[in-house]
């Protein structure tokens, strides 16, 4: 047994233990803390699976942003009155049996791989040179399966619309109910002044490097969102009202440019979402830059929640 397999087994044991504790914990707060830790461990697992792009995404979005949302929710839910009664014992046993069956089915499926494992990796690499990209995952996201990526951005916008639509009618167009902790000269203010320049550089780097190495629009966008949320929470910039035109333009600019380049492909290249030969890389980088901005703003706004206050004049 090599040292790496010992490491893997330890990691799996930790993942399972913490995962189970997030389900079993009595306190919601403890469960959420467990979940954040779990998210970080999970991104190590992704590195062990040689999927660094996924590891970055998981750490940024799966652990970071989701954890932040949940912590905020736990804090607000403290005031909730009364709790539901726990499911009865027979119901829990039935659910346990059902879950065990599903898990066992999956385990059987995983333990019985096909004899010759099929893969698209060679095909991806053969054709990657045409696009000028060096990162095969970016190639799949922006070249071969660009349609999925484009539609997934629309999903993000719909989710934002869904969150906004929960606002009461009288505050529509108002300011999201992000909790602001504005205390002048606090340490948080210091952090919010110091970190964003670094964070923006990191975001640009991630977006740029995504074309040839792990990284890309999602990861860069998440870092941008985190920086924006930080300065808003510290009260350095005000939370914008959702009726601002610039805000809405920023949210859609990525998908719009993506769509426009895709449509241009019908004329200039052979097909929708095809890139004219020789121009693939600059076009993809342009799309990625715009998407990074849009994802950053959209994620930030998703975390900020529905409008809760009317804009003060």
């Amino acid at each position: 047994m090599t040292i790496l397999s010992v490491f893997d087994i330890g990691l799996v044991v930790l993942l399972l233990g913490i995962g189970a504790s997030t389900i079993a914990a009595r306190e919601a707060f403890a469960a959420v803390i467990g979940f954040v830790v779990y998210g970080l461990l999970l991104s190590i697992a992704w590195v062990r699976l040689s999927a660094v792009d996924v590891a970055l995404t998981e750490a940024a979005i799966g652990g970071g942003m989701t954890g932040m949302l949940m912590l905020g929710a736990v804090a607000r839910l403290r005031v909730a009155k009364g709790s539901d009664t726990r499911a009865s014992l027979p119901a829990r046993v039935a659910a346990g049996v059902l879950s065990a069956i599903v898990a066992a089915g999956l385990a059987i499926a995983i333990l019985s791989p096909p004899e010759a494992i099929p893969t698209l990796a060679p095909m991806v690499m053969e054709n990657l040179a045409q696009s000028g990209l060096g990162n095969p995952v970016a190639g799949v996201l922006f070249v071969y399966r660009a349609l999925d990526t484009l539609l997934e951005k629309v999903v993000l916008i719909l989710a934002l619309l869904g969150v906004w639509s929960l606002a009461p009618d009288n505050v529509w167009g108002g300011i999201p109910g992000l909790r602001v902790y504005a205390r002048p000269d606090s340490t948080l203010t210091f952090l919010a002044q110091l970190l964003p320049p670094v964070g923006i550089v990191v975001a640009i780097y991630m977006c740029w490097v995504g074309a040839k190495e792990p990284g890309g629009a999602f990861q860069g966008g998440t870092v941008l969102a985190a920086m924006w949320l930080l300065v808003m929470i510290a009260g350095l910039t005000s939370v914008p009202s959702i009726s601002q035109t610039w805000l809405r333009v920023l949210v859609v600019v990525g998908p719009v440019i993506f769509l426009a380049i895709g449509l241009a492909g019908m004329v200039l290249a052979n097909a929708f979402l095809a890139y004219p030969s020789g121009y693939a890389k600059p076009l993809i980088v342009a799309v990625e830059v715009a998407l990074t901005l849009s994802i950053g703003v959209a994620l930030g706004l998703l975390a900020a929640g529905p409008p809760e206050r009317v804009q003060q004049q």
Partner: peptide
């Protein structure tokens, strides 16, 4: 490559969708 990039790209898409769902 250390793995087939196609499923990796799918996971990235799915993580973002799952986050959107959580936020909603």
């Amino acid at each position: 490559l250390g793995g087939d990039p196609v499923p990796q790209a799918m996971v990235i898409t799915a993580i973002v969708v799952a986050f959107a769902a959580t936020a909603m």
